[in-house]
Simulated assay, not measured.
Amino acid sequence: MVILVPEMVSRMAAEHAKFQDEEYASVPEEASKGEDEGPPPRDHVLLSGRFTTDNPKIKNYMAKVQRELNALGIATFMVNTKRDFGAETMRGLGGARCMVAFCNSSYGEKTSDTYETYCELKHAYENHEIDLIPVQLCTKWPPQPPGQAGKDLCTFVLGKSKVKIKGLESDDTYKAAHKLAADIRDHIKGLGVLDQVGREPPLAAVQENE
């Protein structure tokens, strides 16, 4: 049987209190690190395009260009429509250093959707941390999507003074994916932000006949 004298009890209580103080003192500090981290880094290139399930051409083309950009060492992000579309769009815009707008004839159309190319284009224009890189995939420029709101936005943001990349070989033929990817990379390099969106190439270049 152990008999605890008052001095021992006081000493043990003091040591336990000190231990608790040290233990709990680190908790707020660790928690504050997460709170003070701020927004995510802008370290990728967002690929923005308007595509529908009944017209997969633009989506397939963007996927090829994405692979080619990855092979060139460019970190890219394209919204996965099989997931939560809104969360994907916010993630893509939140971490975008550049946004490549694949401007077909319906790009920038304002629809009833909350997350669409109209919103992406408007956000990229208003956010000076995002460099906008338009790719012309329609014969008439700027794009003239259905609806006045989309037409007005495209005319204002993608007017004649905006530098664009030619994405058409002819009126109905897109430029080869590897050629467009090289043009996009050169444009990013010219903007001086290539080092901010660089990565180790994880994917092999896709073949044009795939």
Rank of each mutant, 00 (worst) to 15 (best):
I184E: 04
G38K: 12
Y61S: 04
Y115P: 01
H123K: 08
V5A: 07
M99V: 12
A149Q: 14
F102M: 09
C103V: 01
T52I: 14
G38E: 13
H178Y: 06
G92D: 09
L132Y: 00
L69D: 06
P28C: 09
M1F: 15
E200M: 14
D36K: 11
M62F: 05
L4R: 03
I58D: 06
K59P: 00
G95T: 15
A87G: 05
Y174P: 02
E88Q: 15
L132A: 03
E15T: 15
T53I: 11
F77M: 02
S32H: 07
S170R: 07
G147V: 09
I188L: 05
V100S: 01
S10L: 14
P202C: 06
G95C: 09
K179R: 02
P39G: 12
K164E: 03
I165W: 01
E37G: 03
D186W: 02
Y61L: 03
K162G: 01
A124I: 06
Q207I: 01
E109T: 12
Q144K: 12
Q144E: 13
E22Q: 15
D113L: 13
S112P: 03
F85L: 06
G159S: 04
K110A: 15
E116G: 14
S161M: 09
T117A: 08
V45H: 10
E120I: 11
E109L: 09
V157K: 04
A63T: 09
E35V: 13
V197N: 13
G150I: 03
G108I: 05
D195K: 10
R83G: 01
T76P: 03
S105H: 08
E15N: 13
Q144N: 12
R42W: 02
P28T: 13
N60I: 04
R199V: 15
I165V: 01
W141K: 02
D186N: 13
F102H: 04
F51A: 13
F156Q: 14
Q148E: 15
E120N: 10
A205T: 13
A177I: 03
F156K: 13
G150A: 10
E23Y: 11
M62I: 15
E169N: 06
D186L: 10
K164Q: 04
L121R: 04
P143M: 05
Q148V: 05
K33A: 02
L93S: 09
L194H: 12
T111H: 04
T114Q: 14
P41K: 05
K57T: 08
N70W: 07
A31K: 10
P39S: 09
S26N: 07
K151G: 04
D183F: 00
H178T: 12
G49S: 14
D21T: 13
D171V: 01
S105M: 08
L69I: 08
Y61I: 05
A87T: 08
A124L: 06
R83I: 00
P145C: 08
A71H: 12
M90T: 11
E68C: 07
K162E: 02
F156V: 08
P39L: 10
